[in-house]
């Protein structure tokens, strides 16, 4: 076992899959010699050569379209979109094409593509670097959307994503890249896509969350504990498809829930989770299911992002509201 940051775990997952399967290709802007702007691909070109790990011209739509073409000829592409705010440039290639390849070819072809991309607030980026756009992706049938919250999960989920025969959008929260280390096995292992993880068991309220908000939720749960409120924290890990069974089992136990996301409130993952709980467990509920989210503006200019982003105090407040309802 080694102590790894999330970014090291991600590099490790790609290294393992590049080794396991000669059809795995890693490419994107600056991923070659430079090792990626966050060093996610550090050393991979040197180890596997320019044929397998390579730089692309600076054009996201081209990267997306090329990934589809490579998939058609038998490869398993792992493209990087340098920041997920740039996804608008490649929306057609992802949502209009990649997600629909199996469908539009009547099942003749599939797109075993893993689109990796950093996202998320709290690191003072310029605009269109930090946005949480997972809701946009999750609305597209044909895609899976995975968001790890820690190094261990990142490695197991990324290996699963690369081996998946359908396109996976793999979103890596920038604040988690180097914020903490964790024991991560050096050998390969997988974590099933579509399975949530109960990070903390509790009996009074369920906190459903993912990404960087998992840490905030765990911190909130510790504080709530001091006040006698026992919170269960569920890390979704995959936001499309949702692990409905784990969410519902928890809500049926605690009878109360809040959903926490870094993204804005309108539409989105949290709204979907609330709707699923209402559809399936309304009679178990002792209080309405509330959401902790960012406000419905464009992602804040960085000088205001600390206030704009939800934190553990917002989570504590909402949890108390549903507990005291």
């Amino acid at each position: 076992m080694a102590q790894m940051t999330m970014i090291q775990a991600i590099t490790d997952a790609m290294r393992i899959e590049l080794k396991n399967d000669e059809n795995v290709l890693v490419f994107g802007e600056d991923v070659g010699q430079n090792g990626g702007v966050f060093r996610a691909t550090e050393g991979l070109q040197k180890e596997f050569g320019e044929d397998r790990v390579f730089d692309t011209p600076l054009a996201e739509s081209g990267i997306g379209g090329m990934s589809i073409g490579l998939a058609l000829t038998g490869f398993r592409p792992v493209p990087e979109i340098q920041f997920f705010g740039f996804v608008y440039e490649v929306m057609d290639a992802i949502s209009g094409q990649m997600a629909r390849l199996r469908y539009r070819s009547g099942g003749s072809f599939n797109a075993p593509i893993t689109v990796r991309s950093p996202f998320g607030g709290g690191v003072k980026t310029p605009e269109l670097h930090a946005d949480s756009l997972e809701g946009l992706m999750a609305q597209q049938p044909g895609l899976k959307v995975v968001i790890p919250s820690n190094p261990y999960d990142a490695k197991g989920l990324l290996i699963s994503a690369i081996r998946d025969n359908d396109p996976v959008i793999f979103l890596e929260h920038m604040k988690l890249y180097r914020s903490f280390r964790q024991e991560v096995p050096e050998e390969e292992y997988t974590i099933e896509i579509g399975k949530a993880d109960v990070k903390r068991e509790g009996s009074d309220v369920t906190i459903v969350t993912y990404g960087a908000m998992v840490q905030a939720s765990l911190k909130a749960a510790e504080e709530l504990e001091k006040e006698g409120i026992n919170a269960e924290v569920i890390d979704l890990r995959t936001v499309s498809p949702l692990d409905i069974d784990t969410i519902i089992a928890s809500v049926e136990k605690t009878n109360r829930a809040i959903v926490v996301q870094e993204a804005q409130k309108q539409a989105g993952i949290a709204a979907s989770v609330v709707a699923e709980i209402n559809d399936r467990a309304i009679l178990s509920l002792e209080a309405p299911v509330l959401r902790v989210t960012a406000p419905d503006t464009v992602f804040a200019f960085s000088a205001a992002e600390d206030v704009w982003l939800p934190d553990h105090t917002d989570i504590i407040e909402k949890a108390k509201t549903v507990v005291n309802f």
Partner: peptide, 9 residues
């Protein structure tokens, strides 16, 4: 763009 990918493949 897909054609570029097929050709590269």
């Amino acid at each position: 763009t897909q054609t570029a990918g097929v050709a590269l493949g």
